[in-house]
Simulated scan of single mutants.
Amino acid sequence: MNRSRREFLQKLTMSSMVLPIVSTYTPQWYGPLHTDVQGPVLRVALMGLGGYAQRVADAMKDCKRAKVTGLVSGTPAKLKEWGSKYNVPERNRYSYETFDDIKNNPDIDAVYVITPNALHHDNVIRAARAGKHVICEKPMAVSVQEGQEMVDACAAAGVQLLIGYRMRFEPNTLEIVNRRNAGEFGKINFFQGQCGFKIGDPNQWRLNKELAGGGALFDIGIYAINGTRYMVGEEPVWVTAQETKTDPTKFKEGVDETIQFQLGFASGAVASCLSTYNMNYLDRFYLNGDKGFAELWPSTGYGPIKGRTHQQPLNHPHIAHQTIQMDEMAAIILDGKKPVLPVDGTTGLQDLKIIEAIYRACATGARQELKLV
């Protein structure tokens, strides 16, 4: 057992001794902490060797159940550099032209698609047709239609499609979910999600509608959308939204700068969220119930995540989110493990339905009804 895990279990033991004094709730850790580290290893090819792919690759060095065994890039120099850095042999390095040959490579079980949003659709379908499981970064596509085609293609090929929702495995986040499920916060009334930062280079692909599909909502606002669903614990049934644009030169037509959106739930709970590319220091989730509250601040950054409830702070030690994510996804693919919070293609498709409804609400000024289940 490594040192960080041993320290975590020691803290968990101490917290379980204290909790009965302040609450009748006893934590149930059936999330990433119980991954079978002795099981088989998921062999993963990374597609799209940009900044986030490097973060994933570096985090996977500490994985017990997942390993980088393949690389896909349109830049030969990157394939050589990354191949050397991550010990990936030349036979497992592919260009986008040769990628389909991956179907004949027994060293690769899954492809992690980390390309610009608009490329996800074709990349995922090609990987599925090659008989490989697929992990796709969020957002899974730039439209509901594309997302559905991806889900259908993976089902037809008999492979799994998972979406890179790393926060759905994060320990502080899961503790709040477990406490909510145990009734500690009572009836949930309200959620607030604030996600944003000032984006830099105006020429980057994230500000190109053809590659990004939109603007801040696709990139950062999706955290609030997805977070609303797992924090409240039910699916929204309506949405309203308002868009603000102060710099139409930087944020061209179809690239949103700032959107405020509100979600309503059948239980009567409501959510108020902000997505922006023009404000810093916005990374906060707040959940309110009639018996208590929970807060994450920061809530979705690369960490460490900080949290508290009406009773006590949340103090899980920081482990790279992608390390936990990839070990957990290996257990899902190889062992059939059912995660606490789903990360499958259907979950990603539901987020796309909400995103499209938000854009419609901005365009029309009218409330949009949602039917996600």
Results as ranks from 00 to 15, higher is better:
residue 349 L to Y: 09
residue 326 M to L: 10
residue 338 K to E: 13
residue 363 A to Q: 12
residue 359 Y to R: 15
residue 329 M to S: 05
residue 302 Y to G: 14
residue 342 P to L: 06
residue 356 E to Y: 11
residue 367 R to F: 00
residue 287 L to A: 00
residue 295 E to A: 15
residue 287 L to G: 05
residue 274 L to G: 03
residue 280 N to K: 09
residue 286 Y to W: 13
residue 305 I to R: 00
residue 371 K to P: 01
residue 329 M to A: 08
residue 321 H to M: 12
residue 276 T to L: 09
residue 369 E to V: 06
residue 366 A to T: 06
residue 366 A to G: 02
residue 331 A to L: 06
residue 300 T to H: 15
residue 361 A to T: 04
residue 318 H to L: 00
residue 298 P to M: 05
residue 313 P to W: 14
residue 304 P to E: 02
residue 351 D to I: 01
residue 295 E to L: 15
residue 282 L to S: 13
residue 345 G to N: 07
residue 292 G to S: 10
residue 292 G to A: 05
residue 352 L to I: 01
residue 340 V to K: 10
residue 318 H to T: 01
residue 300 T to E: 09
residue 348 G to S: 02
residue 347 T to P: 00
residue 304 P to R: 04
residue 294 A to M: 13
residue 302 Y to F: 13
residue 316 H to D: 01
residue 366 A to Q: 15
residue 307 G to Y: 14
residue 289 G to E: 00
residue 326 M to E: 04
residue 308 R to I: 06
residue 275 S to L: 05
residue 305 I to P: 01
residue 341 L to H: 06
residue 322 Q to I: 14
residue 308 R to F: 01
residue 358 I to N: 07
residue 285 F to N: 15
residue 321 H to N: 06
residue 329 M to C: 11
residue 299 S to C: 14
residue 292 G to W: 08
residue 311 Q to S: 14
residue 327 D to K: 00
residue 369 E to T: 08
residue 319 I to S: 08
residue 327 D to L: 07
residue 366 A to Y: 00
residue 364 T to P: 04
residue 270 V to E: 11
residue 337 K to R: 13
